[in-house]
């Protein structure tokens, strides 16, 4: 499924930590084979047990919102109000922008996508972000 995924081109926030097929995104994560720790962003050494017996994996693009908020005062590049969520994806919890005008209730299924999360003097700022999956929309 991830054959068509490649690092984002043209600059993105956290570009070294995810792959995209132009629409969906998947995360590069590290699994520790000594203690089962899961890490994002990826790393060479487990931050729990210091083992170097680790491998890099890719997540799917499906997750579940753990918590979320509409941020109404924030750094100018994100043009508040914007929505953030902690999202659980294949063993890691990731903070990401949400493509929505409302906070996601805990437990909301989401899809990880490539999205514009803000803008600065160089133009749109791209990164991974999540969108709530409506019933019947799951792929």
């Amino acid at each position: 499924m991830t054959n068509s995924f490649a690092p984002p081109t043209g600059g993105a926030v956290g570009a070294e930590n995810f792959l995209t097929d132009g629409v969906r995104a998947v995360l590069r994560v590290t699994r520790c084979h000594n203690c089962a720790g899961m890490w994002f962003p990826p790393r060479d050494q487990c931050s729990t047990c210091a083992s170097r017996d680790v491998t890099e994996e890719l997540t799917s693009s499906s997750g579940i919102a753990y918590a979320s908020s509409v941020v109404r005062i924030g750094p100018p590049r994100f043009q508040a109000p914007y929505v953030l969520a902690y999202v659980d994806i294949d063993g890691v919890r990731v903070l990401a922008h949400v493509d929505s005008s409302e906070a996601l209730p805990p437990g909301t299924p989401v899809e990880l996508r490539l999205a514009t999360i803000g803008a600065d003097e160089d133009g749109p700022v791209l990164s991974y972000a999540v969108a709530p999956i409506m019933k019947g929309e799951a792929r």
Binding site: Y66, G74, Y86, L95
Partner: peptide, 24 residues
């Protein structure tokens, strides 16, 4: 920090804990 790069600010960190606490 990867979360600050995504737009994290301290009130948002506590806001999400608040949303989850109220929910749970």
């Amino acid at each position: 920090d990867i979360e600050i790069a995504q737009g994290m600010v301290m009130p948002a960190a506590y806001a999400m804990r608040a949303q989850r606490y109220l929910h749970d």
